[in-house]
Amino acid sequence: MSQVLYELRASWAIAKKDAAIYYLKPNILVSGALFPLFMFLAFSVGRPAEPALMIPGLVAITILFSSSTIEPVSIPIERRMKTFDRLLSAPISLHAIVLGESLSGFLYSIGIASVPCIAGFVLFGTGLSNGIPFLIGVVLTAFCFATMGTLFAAYPTESPGDIMSMLNLVRLPLIFISGIFIPIASIPYPGQLLVYCSPLTYGTDLIRAGFSGPTLFHPAVDLVMLLLFIGVFQVLANRLYKRFNE
């Protein structure tokens, strides 16, 4: 059996272990599932909006928060319990660990994101005109932010609060510069430059393409940019875990 297959199996084992231990922890449920829902309600209730605009926004926010929440909570806890050393000393590369941790956030996010999707479809009727960009958008956005969560969790602390604070400094501004609540055209010029630096922009855009809503870029551009962000986050996460373990 090749080493690649060994590593993929180990990554899968890490993701399964995280699912069994962390998915139903109260702090994960609050910040990964309830927080994005209430945030969306706070900004959307009472405002006239098309389902084609609302559902992609709700799905994108849910994915952002749910996928990037598991690792910033689980990894510091595992550092404190010294169970993270178990992963670091196993016959697998750091790539396999980062992939496994990201996979765990990704799967959690897919499960959580299905709730607003189903609710949206039931309440507003499906509005989904093209399932392929929608599905690709959901999958890539979830994996992208799961990797981002794993990247932030590389910071060598044993307190989840330390990482969540840093992460929220990034996650919350992302919502406002990615065209979910505020149309990009109405963002002042310097802020519009930041729009292009946000992976959430491309994720929301691709999901919105599935609803035939107004999009900023061609779906192929969104797809390439999301893949690029995933690659960059994976490489950075590997380097940080290596550096902080020295």
Binding site: R9, A13, A20, I21, M81, T83, A90, P91
Partner: peptide
């Protein structure tokens, strides 16, 4: 095989699942 100084087991998993997870890490 490594037995760390702290008993670094997963408290929320059963003894069996801890052991199986360890085996999966070692393929």
């Amino acid at each position: 095989g490594i037995v760390h100084e702290t008993s670094n087991v997963y408290d929320d998993l059963s003894a069996w699942k801890n052991l199986i997870f360890s085996a999966e890490l070692y393929s």
